[in-house]
């Protein structure tokens, strides 16, 4: 599968090592609809290709929005791209957050660090269809305030009646919100556990403890989804790299119901 050329329209710096690229179709590319939680393979010309989730609005497929953390040579090359430059795109791939199927329920979004990027399309979907849902809560944690993503949008999300509860591990003196891990935020969100659907993305340990805590509070495990990360190289189930037990993360995932992952992610080095 050949990457299609898309053109960088904006390179927005989110944090010290995270940028958001806004892409528009190049010469032969066509806009493609995607669902929240899906990913594209992004190709930095000549440097390599990496899986990156869509972080933009699924209601507007005319542009692609990807939020990328600089963690290696390929992501560094992507983060350096300037407006007008080309990026290769294959996709969209993978399973999605079934937020559209949760009408009438409460929505709990729990994210750690860069994990908010694959969940922002859920927020976008909720914003476009706010009346379809009851209480909506975003529980978001990062190591320190400077590593929080999309903080400029929190106020407008709150105005649309989304509770945004934020925590950090290391707080400076002027920090006025919560300190501690994401699980400690659950009690600060207003929602009915029995009618809540939860979407979790962050480090595996954060997702494990958050899912367990939500379950102990009464959220159904079958209504809890997590998004997994492995080394997706081909994204179509051929290369074998992203296997986790029975699953190919690229095709069966990255979004899984919690019961499907619960026993697999507790096995070390699986």
């Amino acid at each position: 599968m050949l990457p299609e050329a898309w053109i960088v329209r904006e390179n927005l710096r989110e944090t010290e090592d995270v940028v958001t690229l806004v892409l528009e179709p190049g010469g032969s590319a066509a806009p493609t609809a995607f669902a929240p939680g899906q990913f594209n393979m992004l190709y930095a010309f000549g440097a390599g290709e990496v899986p990156i989730s869509m972080s933009g609005d699924p209601g507007d497929p005319t542009k692609l929005v990807h939020t990328i953390r600089d963690v290696g040579p390929v992501t560094a090359a992507l983060c350096r791209l300037q407006p007008g430059e080309l990026v290769g795109v294959r996709g969209p791939f993978g399973s999605h957050w079934p937020v559209a199927d949760q009408q009438g329920r409460d929505i709990v979004i729990a994210a750690g660090g860069i994990g908010l990027a694959p969940l922002r399309p859920v927020v976008h979907h909720v914003l476009r269809h706010r009346g379809d849902y009851d209480d909506v809560v975003l529980l978001y944690g990062a190591r320190r305030p400077s590593e929080l993503l999309f903080t400029g949008e929190f106020e407008s999300w709150r105005q649309s009646d989304i509770q945004v509860v934020v925590t950090v591990d290391h707080a400076p003196a002027d920090w006025t919100e919560h300190v501690g891990v994401v699980t400690t935020l659950i009690r600060h969100g207003k929602f009915e556990t029995e009618q809540a659907s939860a979407f979790l993305c962050g480090p595996e340990v954060m997702m494990r403890f958050t899912a367990a805590e939500l379950e102990s509070k009464g959220v159904s495990p079958d209504k809890t989804w997590i998004s997994m990360e492995r080394n997706m190289k081909c994204a179509v189930g051929f290369c074998g790299h992203c296997q986790l037990g029975t699953e190919f993360i690229c095709m069966d995932g990255p979004v899984f119901t919690w019961p499907r992952m619960r026993n697999l992610i507790t096995v070390r080095e699986l």
């Binding site: 010309f45 440097a47 290369c239 074998g240 790299h241």
Partner: peptide, 26 residues
């Protein structure tokens, strides 16, 4: 066994790029 890996390379001008696939192993 079917696992493979890909390597992306470019020439010195940066204008010409290739993708190679090779057998890989778990």
């Amino acid at each position: 066994c079917f696992c493979s890996s890909v390597e992306d390379v470019a020439d010195l001008t940066g204008e010409h790029a290739e993708r190679w696939r090779r057998w890989d192993s778990c």
